Structures are given as structure tokens and as C-alpha cells.
Amino acid sequence: MKYVCLGYIDESKFVTLSEEEVSKIMEECLDYDDVLRRGGHFLGGEALDSARNAVTLKPENGEVVVTDGPFAETKETLGGILLLEARDMNHAIALMSKHPGAKMGPFEIRPADETINKLVAERGAAITDEA
């Protein structure tokens, strides 16, 4: 099964870290990502820029309105995503609980919606076939 792991971070705490501390944390995270790769569990991922550079689209009176930053009212913002292959949720939890990024903030683990993702893949393949 595929799982989407959402890593959250409190940016106000992160910016207080020294360059050396950030380097050490990143190296630990990348090293563990390599462990996941070697085990066939790492499917991909992306780090995200600061929430200060984000916008949120939301419906308002039948229109789409753009607002600055993330919509959620929280100190912790989404810092990145990791796509994981695991046997089941317990396996995903076991793998991600060892990830050094979990020390920086919470990781939310959600099963991927295989039915919808199959539809998305089929549409993508159809567009590719048209080209």
C-alpha cells in the first residue's frame, strides 16, 4: 500500500537553529531516506518552501479567493511530503517513527486513495497517448 507522510514543522523554532544544526538534521533525514530507498519503501517526496511564501485558494460566495499563507491556524505548517510503500498502517508507522524528521514536528500518515489515484493515472496515460 502507498502512504502519504506529511511532515510538519514550527518555522519559528526552525529559524533559530544554526546552519550546522540544520545541516546535521538534513543529513540525518537524507540518510534515513536512503534506508527507505534501499528497502523499497521510498517512492518520492518533496520539501516545501516556507509557509510565508504560500497562498491558499478557498471558495467564497461562489468564487475562488486567494489568501496569503496556509489556511490552517496553527504554529506548525506543512514542511514536506514523503511517499511511502508499506504493508499496512502499522508498517508505515514503524518506518516513519524512525525518521529523524519526526523529531522536528509531527508526521501525519495517510493511506493513499488507490481508487482515485488509479483514475488520475488513467487520465494521465490517455493524455500522453494523445500526444
Score class of each variant (00 low, 15 high):
Glu21Asn: 01
Leu119Phe: 11
Glu11Leu: 01
Glu85Leu: 10
Phe14Thr: 06
Ala94Ile: 08
Glu20Cys: 02
Thr74Ala: 07
Leu17Pro: 01
Ala112Gly: 09
Glu76Arg: 01
Gly44Asp: 13
Leu6Asn: 08
Phe107Arg: 09
Arg37Lys: 11
Val65Ile: 13
Lys24Ser: 13
Pro59Met: 04
Gly79Ala: 08
Arg38Trp: 08
Gly40Gln: 05
Ile25Cys: 11
Leu119His: 14
Glu130Ser: 14
Asn53Arg: 12
Glu21Ala: 03
Gly69Asn: 01
Met96Thr: 02
Arg110His: 00
Gly79Asp: 12
Pro59Asn: 08
Ile9Asp: 14
Glu27Val: 00
Leu36Ile: 05
Glu21Tyr: 01
Pro111Asp: 02
Gly105Gln: 04
Lys2Met: 09
Ala54Cys: 03
Lys98Ala: 14
Asp34Cys: 12
Asn53Leu: 11
Phe42Ser: 04
His91Cys: 10
Thr77Lys: 05
Met1Leu: 05
Phe71Ile: 02
Met26Ala: 11
Val120Asp: 14
Val22Arg: 10
Asp113Phe: 04
Asn90Ser: 15
Cys29Arg: 08
Asn117Arg: 07
Thr56Met: 00
Ser18Asp: 03
Lys2Trp: 10
Glu108Met: 06
His41Gln: 15
Glu63Leu: 15
Met89Glu: 04
Lys24Pro: 09
Val22Met: 10
Ile81Gln: 10
Lys13Asn: 03
Asp113Cys: 00
Leu48Ala: 09
Ser97Tyr: 15
Asn53Cys: 09
Gly101Arg: 03
Ser23Thr: 09
Thr77Asn: 04
Met26Asp: 13
Asp49Val: 13
Gly105Trp: 03
Ala47Asp: 14
Asp88Arg: 04
Ile81His: 09
His91Asp: 14
Phe71Ala: 06
Ser23Ala: 12
Lys118Arg: 13
Ala92Cys: 06
Glu76Met: 00
Val22Tyr: 07
Glu28Met: 07
Val64Ala: 07
Glu76Gly: 00
Met89Leu: 14
Phe42Leu: 14
Thr67Asp: 03
Leu95Gly: 02
Ile127Trp: 01
Glu46Gln: 12
Gly105Glu: 05
Asp49Lys: 07
Ala72Cys: 04
Val65Gly: 03
Pro70Phe: 05
Glu20Met: 05
Pro111Lys: 00
Pro59Tyr: 02
Thr74Gln: 01
Ile109Glu: 05
Thr67Phe: 05
Asp49Ser: 11
Glu60Ser: 10
Glu73Val: 15
Val55Thr: 08
Pro59Gln: 06
Ser12His: 06
Thr77Gly: 02
Gly79Asn: 12
Gly69Ile: 11
Asp49Tyr: 09
Ala126Pro: 04
Glu108Tyr: 04
Ile25Asp: 07
Asp49Asn: 10
Asp31Trp: 07
Val35Ser: 05
Tyr3Thr: 00
Val66Cys: 12
Ile109Pro: 06
Asp68Leu: 00
Leu57Cys: 04
Thr56Ile: 02
Asp129Ile: 06
Lys2His: 12
Lys13Ser: 04
Ala126Phe: 03
Arg52Asn: 07
Asp33Pro: 03
Ala131His: 11
Asn53His: 12
Leu82Val: 14
Ile93Cys: 05
Leu82Pro: 09
Met1Lys: 14
Ala131Ser: 15
Gly7Phe: 15
Gly101Ala: 09
Thr56Leu: 00
Thr74Cys: 12
His99Ala: 08
Glu19Pro: 09
Gly45Ser: 04
Leu84Gly: 02
